[in-house]
Amino acid sequence: MTDVTVDRDVVFHRPPERESPLELDVYRPDDGGTDRPAVVVYHGGGWIEGEKGQLEALERGLAERGYVCFDANYRLSGEATFPTPVEDGAAAVRFAKEHADEYGIDPDRVATTGHSAGGHLAALVAAADGDFDPEDATVSSKVAASAPISGAYDMRDRTPEAANDLERQFLGGGPDEVPERYERVSPAAHVDSATPPTLVLHGDDDDLLPADGAREYAQALAEAGRPVELGILPGGGHGIVVEPEDWQDRGIETVADFLDRRL
Results as ranks from 00 to 15, higher is better:
E19T: 08
E19H: 04
S20V: 12
P21W: 10
E23K: 14
L24E: 06
L24T: 01
R28I: 01
P29M: 10
G33A: 14
D35W: 00
D35A: 14
R36L: 15
V39F: 07
V39I: 11
V39S: 04
V41S: 14
Y42G: 00
H43A: 00
G46D: 05
W47A: 00
E49G: 14
E51K: 15
G53L: 11
G53T: 10
L55F: 08
E56S: 15
A57W: 02
A57Y: 13
L58T: 14
L58E: 08
E59L: 14
E59D: 14
L62R: 10
A63K: 06
R65N: 03
G66L: 12
Y67W: 15
Y67C: 03
V68G: 11
F70E: 01
D71G: 02
D71V: 05
Y74Q: 01
Y74T: 00
R75A: 05
L76C: 06
L76K: 13
S77P: 03
G78P: 02
G78W: 13
E79V: 12
A80R: 14
T81A: 15
F82C: 11
P85E: 12
V86S: 08
E87D: 04
D88P: 02
G89A: 15
A90Q: 01
A91C: 04
A92N: 05
V93I: 13
R94L: 11
F95M: 10
F95Y: 15
A96R: 02
E102G: 00
Y103P: 09
D106P: 05
P107H: 09
D108G: 15
D108F: 02
R109H: 13
V110T: 03
G114W: 07
G114P: 04
H115W: 14
S116H: 05
S116P: 01
A117S: 15
G118W: 04
G119A: 10
H120G: 10
L121A: 01
L121T: 07
L121Y: 00
A122M: 06
L124K: 05
V125C: 01
A126D: 01
A127E: 12
D131C: 00
E135M: 07
A137E: 05
V139M: 06
S140Q: 08
V143E: 06
V143H: 10
A145M: 10
